[in-house]
Write a protein that binds this DNA or RNA. Structure first.
Length: 803
DNA sequence: CAGCCATATCTTTTT
DNA sequence: GATATGGCTG
């Protein structure tokens, strides 16, 4: 062999050894640095690891691995030395590697885009631990599509007509604005539901169709002509409010880059490397954005799994990934098919299900794990029996000591299914958490407080102004507001501007006083921002001086939860300030608009978790329950009736569901199910039938109601006889968590029903019920002053009431 | 202008 | 069956 080849082989050998923790395909993905690269990463194949290691590799060594550059004066001796080096330890080899650096990339030239904040956070934190120097990892651009675009818009937003401090509108704001516009255009929302209009507009946004193009493109269609009208007004309205909705954030960024050569050149020259995660979920706009950003160097790497594309209904275009190698000529395609998560049985089942799809790149996952059990299939009478079965199985496993509550996840097709299960769990006393679409921020009181803050931050924000101008009641009614809105439209200025000069308009004469008062309030808050007040103190001022807090206090018992929620919101503000040095109101609002509840899901609490299969994507659990595996539920009836493409998407969802499980999977279906007030009799899901019988263990229904009694160790009853006391229902007793640790262990004393206790803030109260929740205890306490509350022993800091 | 009762709606939703 | 919205009345 020639000297040159020996040198390159020896060099690559050293890198291979240094990255021996990865398998061959993973390593090749890491080392392939230049040009377009598609990594088809199956579920549980170490996708994030590859992504992070590759970014770190590029920054450390550039394209050292495949580079054919030779050192000056290459001779026999130095090659032999290099060949010998492979016998050294990994640590020693790593010392040698820097000598191969070729065209390394500065951290700020690296862009990594994900879909969720959670994924972005994961990448950021893993990168932070990959580099000793914090300044390296923090200068890498890693964020969601939306946060990356926001960053670009903050720099160049004025080019597309946005002022500093622009606002993000969420789906609710959009809905309000659209239905408002429809009213003003006299379009009946019975004939044209707001939802369908929004979805048409959103689809247009995703396909980068502006309202003008939309108008001409659909000129022949009456309905679409109307939509075009609404679309146009909506866009004008967003602009005049200095606001963008989620789709706009991406679309406007693209227009900005398309129409402004300097901005475009700045970014395409800046980002030498672009990485995109979950590429199968990109829509046309996102595809276009990555294409533009990567157009300078075309070093674009996308990671994804066509089999896990489950967001078509949101505009995700699976052809982006299927045709990646056609879009980018010379693209290299690497498949990661080794799964490090699930047992063989689980993978075989998943492979069999997904093999029924035709439009796919084709992958077959394999694993080294041979310790698995068959898939447990169980038929229950109805949804309540289904819930009880799940509870029994969890109790059994936890009682045997092998599992904690947090090892279990219940994944369902629709949120509605969680109800019956939740009810049963609430009774059982098993600690659980439900992740539903409803975000904490969607609660009215939070949205109201946010609206105040948003209006202060951006005075043009008419939507938020309308939301809170009469909340608390300031005697500013609809008529006054309509007048203000009309004048604002005529003068093409913001509603706030009109309100602050209300005395100048005869139409507003009657309410001029109250309107001016409101403007003064907002001005006062704006003035506060210029002082060195902390964000927390500022937010408290807003809540107090606006009268919002008083309104809730006056509201009595029903509004108690809302006050608590507002306190929780404030702790979010405190949290933000402590995380972001020099954090501003604008910064807080932006983060708030772009962060969802699922991002905050932490897996530390010992509780069973319930969520939709969609939300579970990217997560893994030792034991997974899939209730409601019935034709009509999953796949849903609408998808059964629709085209093959819909069914394939549904099947991919089933594939995602099954591949969440590490060790055990339970598939449950019922004979009869009550859903939406109707009893249905659904056959078992066709996806279950796609799993070969030899992988399935059909679990017979037991006749006895108290099946779990035989698993409940006697010690449980004798150790804590008190727990059953408040319940007469047998099944409740039976379903108590087994081996629930007495709270005493944590240095807390246990109270019983009827005890009188003292709480730090709520004062004197009487214990109504005592429920063990895993390692903690839930008390329901009737307080003298603040009514009945449910509190966890760990947090409540209760004392025996004395005197 | 605010509270109350009738009515419609019910996949999935990373931002 | 449960919940959010809207129209109507006080």
């Amino acid at each position: 062999m020639e000297l040159k080849e020996r040198y390159l082989a020896a060099k690559r050998r050293l890198f291979d050894i240094a990255y021996a923790g990865l398998n061959d395909m993973q390593r090749e993905s890491v080392f392939t640095v230049k040009g377009p690269l598609l990594v088809l990463a199956g579920a549980g194949s170490g996708k994030t690891t590859v992504l992070v290691k590759r970014i770190a590799f590029i920054i450390k060594y550039g394209d050292a691995y495949f580079s054919e550059k030779l050192p000056h004066g290459l001779d026999e001796d130095s090659v032999v030395k290099l060949e010998e080096a492979s016998k050294l330890s990994r640590g020693e080899i790593e010392q040698i590697l820097p000598e191969f650096i070729n065209e390394p990339c500065a951290p700020w030239q690296m862009l990594a885009i994900t879909f969720t904040n959670k994924a972005a956070g994961e990448i950021k934190s893993r990168l932070a631990s990959a580099f000793d120097d914090e300044s390296i990892s923090s200068s890498i651009w890693a964020g969601t599509f939306h946060s990356v675009c926001m960053r670009i818009l903050r720099k160049y937003g004025d080019r597309v007509g946005y002022e500093a401090g622009f606002t993000v509108y969420d789906t609710e704001d959009t809905k309000k604005a659209i239905s408002d516009i429809m009213k003003s255009l006299n379009i009946d929302d019975k004939v044209m539901p707001v939802k369908s209009v929004i979805s048409s507009i959103s689809k247009a946004n995703e396909r980068l169709i502006t309202c003008d193009t939309f108008e001409t493109e659909y000129a022949g269609d009456y309905r679409m002509r109307k939509v075009a009208q609404i679309y146009k007004r909506y866009q004008e309205r967003l602009k005049s409010c200095n606001a963008l909705d989620y789709d706009d954030i991406i679309m406007q960024t693209i227009f900005l880059l398309r129409d402004n050569e300097d901005a475009r050149d700045y970014y395409r020259n800046k980002f030498r490397y672009v990485c995109v995660d979950e590429y199968q979920d990109t829509n046309l706009a996102q595809f276009e954005l990555t294409r533009i950003l990567a157009s300078g160097y075309e070093n674009i790497m996308v990671v994804g799994d066509d089999d896990q594309s489950i967001y078509k209904f949101r505009g995700a275009d699976i052809t982006n990934i299927l045709e990646f190698d056609r879009t980018y000529k010379n693209a290299k395609v690497i498949r990661l098919e080794q799964n490090y998560r699930s047992t063989k049985q689980i993978l075989d089942a998943a492979n069999m299900i997904i093999s029924h799809n035709t439009s796919r790149k084709g992958k077959t996952l394999f694993t080294d794990r041979t310790d698995g059990e068959k898939i447990k299939l169980r038929c229950c009478e109805d949804q309540n029996a289904e819930a009880r079965y799940i509870i029994d199985e969890i109790n059994k496993a936890v009682a045997s000591g092998s599992r904690g509550f947090k090892d279990f996840a219940i994944l369902y097709r629709t949120n509605a299914q969680s109800q019956a299960i939740e009810r049963a769990f609430a009774k059982s006393g098993i600690p659980y958490r439900v992740l539903c679409g409803q975000r904490f921020n969607d609660r009215k009181e939070i949205k109201d407080v946010l609206a105040y803050l948003q209006l202060i931050n951006n005075h043009k924000d008419n939507e938020r102004l309308k939301r809170i101008i009469n909340e608390p009641k300031r005697k500013i009614g609809k008529q006054t507001l309509d007048a203000v809105e009309q004048i604002a439209a005529e003068q093409s200025c913001s509603m706030y501007e009109i309100i602050s000069q209300a005395d100048k308009y005869t139409a507003l004469k009657r309410s001029a006083g109250t309107l001016l008062g409101f403007a003064e309030l907002i001005d006062y808050f704006s003035g506060l921002l210029d002082t060195d007040i902390t964000l927390e103190a500022f937010v408290r001022q807003v809540i107090d001086r606006s009268g919002y807090r008083q309104m809730l206090i006056d509201g009595g018992d029903e509004e108690k939860d809302r006050l608590d929620n507002i306190e929780e919101f404030i702790s979010g503000v405190i949290d933000y300030s402590s995380r972001e040095e020099g954090g501003t109101l604008g910064g807080f609002l932006e983060e708030n608009a772009l962060v969802s509840e699922v991002d905050k899901y932490d897996d530390t609490a010992d509780a069973v978790v319930m969520m939709t299969i969609h939300s579970a994507k990217g997560l893994e659990f030792p034991i997974v329950f899939l209730p409601g595996m019935e034709d009509g539920i999953f796949p849903g009836m609408q998808n059964i009736l629709a085209s093959d493409a819909e069914m394939e998407e549904e099947r991919r969802l089933a594939y995602v569901a099954v591949t969440r499980a590490k060790d055990v999977i339970y598939i449950v279906h019922t004979q009869r199910r009550m859903l939406y007030g109707r009893t249905t009799y659904n056959p078992i899901s066709r996806f279950v039938k796609e799993i070969p019988e030899e992988l399935i263990d059909t679990v017979e229904e037991r006749r006895s109601v108290s099946t779990s009694a035989e698993y409940a160790p006697k010690t449980y009853f004798s150790a804590s006889p008190r727990f059953g006391a408040g319940f007469s229902e047998e099944k409740v007793t039976v379903n108590k968590p087994l081996f629930a640790k007495p709270a005493q262990e944590a240095g807390k004393r246990i109270f019983k029903e009827g005890d009188i206790v003292a709480h730090m803030t709520f004062g004197r109260g009487e214990i109504l019920t005592v429920k063990p929740m895993g390692a903690d205890t839930l008390y329901e306490i009737a307080f003298d002053k603040v009514g009945t509350k449910k509190l966890m022993a760990t947090y409540a800091k209760l004392k025996k009431y004395e005197g």
